[in-house]
Amino acid sequence: MNISSIMAKATSAVEFMYDKKAEIKRYEEIVKPNGADGMEWIIKHTDVPCRLSTPKLDNTVQGEANAINYDVKMFLSSLFDVKAGDIIIVNGEEYESAKKPFVYVSHQEVFLVWKGYA
């Protein structure tokens, strides 16, 4: 028995902890009805079970309004295709996929960035 088969058995236990649902959008080329090329946000996945973790809270940008920037780690099934730059919406909050996901046999970890103002 190899490590991949052992980790595959852990998938259902990992997915049991997913307590949120996400929508994943990607900016892709489209062809408009008039034949012109364009770009548009396309929904790639909906109702994706996931879990969020916040490893760091950083409020360092100050100006006319205090900008709040913090990193979030999202855990989800490795079956979903997520790319850097995708927009992820979880519970009405919009995040951007900041880096290429770390994909494992049992799950994947995606680093997200949320930006807002206090």
Rank of each mutant, 00 (worst) to 15 (best):
K25N: 10
T46P: 10
V31W: 06
E96P: 00
E29P: 01
K99E: 06
S77E: 13
K56Y: 14
H45N: 10
Y95E: 00
I24G: 01
E96Y: 04
P55D: 02
D81F: 15
K44I: 15
N34D: 14
E23W: 03
E94I: 05
Q62E: 14
V82M: 01
L57R: 13
Y27N: 12
D71T: 14
E29C: 01
K100W: 08
M74A: 13
A67E: 09
R51N: 08
A84I: 01
D86M: 02
I68R: 05
K32Q: 15
L52A: 06
C50K: 12
I30K: 06
F75Y: 14
Y27F: 14
P49W: 12
G63C: 01
N91T: 12
H45A: 13
A84Q: 11
P49A: 11
P49I: 07
H45I: 05
I43F: 01
K21M: 05
T46R: 15
K56V: 13
D81Q: 14
M39A: 11
I43E: 05
V48G: 00
K100S: 15
A65F: 14
I43L: 14
F80S: 05
V90I: 07
R26N: 08
M74T: 04
D71Q: 13
D37R: 15
S78R: 10
I24Y: 02
L79H: 12
V31M: 06
G35C: 14
C50A: 05
V48C: 03
E28P: 11
D47M: 03
F75V: 07
K44R: 10
E64A: 11
E40L: 04
V31L: 03
T54D: 14
H45G: 02
S53E: 11
A98V: 09
I89P: 06
A98L: 15
M39W: 12
K44Q: 12
T60F: 02
E96R: 10
D71W: 07
Q62D: 06
F80P: 02
I87G: 01
T54I: 10
G85A: 05
R51K: 11
V48D: 05
M39R: 08
I88F: 03
